[in-house]
Amino acid sequence: MGLFRRKHAVLPGFGPSLGYTIFYLSVVVLIPLSALFFKTATLSWDQFVTAVAAPRVLASYRVTFGSALVAAAVNGVFGVLVAWVLVRYRFPGKKLIDALVDLPFALPTAVAGITLASIYSANGWLGSRLEPLGIKVAFTPVGIMVAMIFIGLPFVVRTVQPVLEELDQEIEEAASCLGASRWQTFYRVLFPTMLPAILTGFALAFARAVGEYGSIIFIAGNMPMESEITPLLIITKLEQYDYAGATAIATVMLLVSFLLLLSINMLQKWSRRFADN
């Protein structure tokens, strides 16, 4: 009845909270980021194209976005699993494991890179065991993925975890009372509720991986055309005092990530509406 229409008006604080959000967003993010666009705009169109579409740059997009996708997908699967295990099961050392999940945030990215390189290099703990099997991780594109998985993992776990924690188990009980199997309950009831959080986690892990620099350069090998990531090319441009060229590549990366994030956020909205019905 009338209740439905009043829903939007009932809760207070929409105006001020949205206003503050937009204000703070502009001051902290949008205005500083606009510097990027203004600097890029000092280039002519031809210069811009040469800067962002040189063969080495194109190859670096493939490496960066491709590895980030794989890493985010791996994190999407294992992150949800870790979150599930942490919220639902009991095992010794659980609290410790829970805290460990934040490690990739707490560890400076450079340290992470150095550490991963030392573990996976041919004389490292794991590298020396993988090498005889013909698997090389450090200084290859696989190394890039390993570093990206490392830095992206907390995003998925930490976005899914609170949702799982707040989930009312009565719904599950009800589902199972109605004869649903455990798998059906998960697939039909739990998964749709978790999906927005999973997608958010995936998107954030992906976006973070695309921009990552510090941890990757130590393990990537950085060979042009095969294991050179785009942020490294930005640094290369900076070393030559080519700020405009650097911002041009940064702008392209930003736009691509923005579009990807936007589509995932739209998908998420759609999936929520789907789940509601």
């Binding site: 959000t21 937009i22 967003l25 993010v29 949008l30 500083p32 980021l33 510097a35 990027l36 990215t109 998107a203 954030l204 976006a207 973070r208 695309v210 921009g211 990552e212 620099y213 510090g214 785009t230 942020p231 930005i234 640094i235 900076l238 700020y243 650097a246 911002t247 940064a250 990366m253 930003l254 990530s257 923005f258 994030l261 936007l262 956020n265 739209m266 998420q268 909205k269």
Partner: peptide
């Protein structure tokens, strides 16, 4: 969705670029 994506933006900006701006 657009607003949420704008909030996500700093994640996707390479840290080096965040300093550069």
């Amino acid at each position: 969705s657009f607003l949420v994506t704008l909030i996500d933006l700093p994640f996707s900006v390479s840290p080096v670029v965040s300093g550069l701006i």
